[in-house]
Design a protein around this nucleic acid. Structure first.
Lengths: 335, 335
DNA sequence: ATGAAAGCGCTAACAA
DNA sequence: TTGTTAGCGCTTTCAT
């Protein structure tokens, strides 16, 4: 390339990086050579000396629309900038360390991670080398930033709503997980993940009313896992009058089972969390907690860019929540 | 690293790559040093000499669940292999060249692209350097592989179904797009993209019955674009008795407008294409054409790995389609 | 303002 | 079987 333009490599490098010390005519010469040769700098070579202009996003469960919304907003924010977003999808949060490590191995300039199952220690160590923003977990770290919805108040709102409607037999639809210990890590801090907080506040509210909490475990975070679990639940003795799902993807699965059984919101009400786009569809109309997924994605990118820019003090954001009451919750027919 | 283990760099390299010519004791020594130092090879440095063990997936519109399913199956196939999948998301198919170029700049070992707006010439040129698999477009290329659903027969099935139900005023819900010309490219081959095929077969079937085709253009490929367009349509004189949506994301948006207007399938039937997961939800129950998105993703990865492995003859796959008749289509109340 | 040259961490060819 | 060495294509420092 340099040879073709009849200039030094350094000159080409400077022009590309818009660096100081190039005359206008030099710039012209190099730029026309670039255009003519259709020259593209190799990111890998640049990575050897510095940055890759690549931001990594770890996504557990790409089928979860809450995650898609975050990816969408990150894409929107980054469009037209010099940074390229790459998503490392995994099958479940337990594989989070693999995806994050993989992104680090590829020397991305920053990482945004959505609620992976990794220890804070492990992440702290990584964050010493590379900017990291954590979405979802309520971590307190000196090295990386955190953005989470206000799970406690969101859950409170759901519980108050259901109780006010007259529900007493309220089940919490939970996913398994958070069992895995990443190698060489200390134990996970308790209650840092979003579902743990929602589960805890649910239990507290039930206890406060003298009601027995009913935790229904799904086999995983897929819609289908929830459908199966709720189908079983409906066929059992322990049928609740309302189900609070740990997140909307589970709630949608629950609604499948309920609709399939020919039941409606007065038989079994359903509330979710995240307010994914389909929740507002008039044919679904799922009561859910909005935690501003789109804004979370925007903020995450903003924070990681700030860190790339030099910030070192950690930032912790908590997004306000708002309960969207829709037709999937109603007063119970048989309280 | 090499120094710490007291061996040569070449030895380390060989152990990592499982290459020929390492004694068991050498392997042991190196491996324990790797474990102890928590050593991770830098992908960028490897890229300078060869491969990156990274596969790129270009996704237009991450909010489209058909695309998510493809990403999901690709993730599943690649889990546990030495390859890492990275997704380059864009806002619309018109930005396809940016995402693909960006992946190429990052020297991924292979690229899977979902129906981007790029010329076949441009792609052919790129495919000379890097394995490419195209999903969606019915391209005929000597250099890259193609996987597409059988759009013609799928559309035929939808049209026959609607006509058999008694519909005559059938609109095609189309998205704009495919207008953009990538720089330095020849014109796009006509009819290579999925929507063009569906639109064409729709028009043919309408003409065959002596009916005027009714093309309804949305502002884009988002669910919301379809909702707006259909809301306008319902309020106009030209209200059809059935809408065939170019793909399911548009169909879901159409159903929003229809449900919101208090209408049902007998007023305005809706059929879509792709059979995204939510289509089978009992509360949505969208008639749609299944083109096996999950299998498409699997095959795409298989093909790109085959190419990395040395295959050079192009492969073209066409997936069979199956019409899933559900409750969103019904005989018209007012034919 | 420009160019020469060192070096980033690997792999591959070759020498020992 | 092992180690030495020459690059891959950039960025950065340092002369000019």
């Amino acid at each position: 390339m340099a040879a073709a333009a009849g200039v030094s490599r350094a000159a080409v490098s400077k022009v590309i990086r818009n660096a100081y010390g190039v005359s206008p005519q030099m710039r012209d010469r190099v730029e026309s050579a670039i255009a003519q040769l259709d020259y593209r700098p190799r990111i890998a070579a640049r990575a050897m000396r510095g940055s890759t202009f690549t931001l990594g996003l770890e996504i557990p469960q790409i089928a979860n629309d809450f995650h898609s919304v975050i990816a969408e907003s990150a894409t929107d924010v980054l469009a037209g900038t010099k940074y390229q977003l790459v998503i490392a999808p995994i099958r479940n949060p337990e594989e989070g360390d693999l995806a994050i490590q993989s992104l680090a191995d590829r020397q991305v300039d920053g990482i945004v991670a959505i609620a992976p199952v990794v220890s804070t220690d492990w992440l702290d160590q990584l964050a010493a080398r590379i900017p990291i923003v954590m979405i979802g977990h309520h971590d307190i770290s000196a090295r990386y930033d955190t953005i989470a919805g206000d799970d406690a108040s969101g859950t409170d709102a759901v519980m108050s709503h259901l109780i006010d409607l007259g529900h007493r037999r309220i089940a919490f639809l939970d996913s398994t997980g958070m069992q895995y210990q990443p190698p060489g890590s200390s134990e996970m801090s308790p209650g840092r993940d979003p579902l743990a907080v929602r589960r805890r506040v649910y239990s507290e509210r039930m206890h406060a009313l003298g009601l027995p909490p009913q935790l229904v475990r799904t086999a995983g975070n897929m819609e289908e896992d929830a459908r199966v679990a709720v189908a079983d639940l409906l066929a059992s003795e322990a049928r609740p009058s309302a189900i609070f799902a740990g997140h909307d993807t589970l709630a949608i699965g629950a609604l499948r089972a309920i609709a399939h059984a020919g039941l409606d919101a007065q038989d079994v009400s359903v509330a979710g969390f995240d307010d994914i786009p389909i929740a507002s569809h008039p044919m679904i109309s799922l009561t859910s907690v909005d935690q501003q997924g789109y804004a979370i994605g925007q903020e995450a990118i903003r924070l990681v860019l700030e860190r790339i820019d030099g910030r070192t003090e950690p930032v912790r954001l908590q997004m306000p929540t708002e309960l969207k009451v829709r037709r999937s919750t109603a007063p119970p027919r048989h309280p």
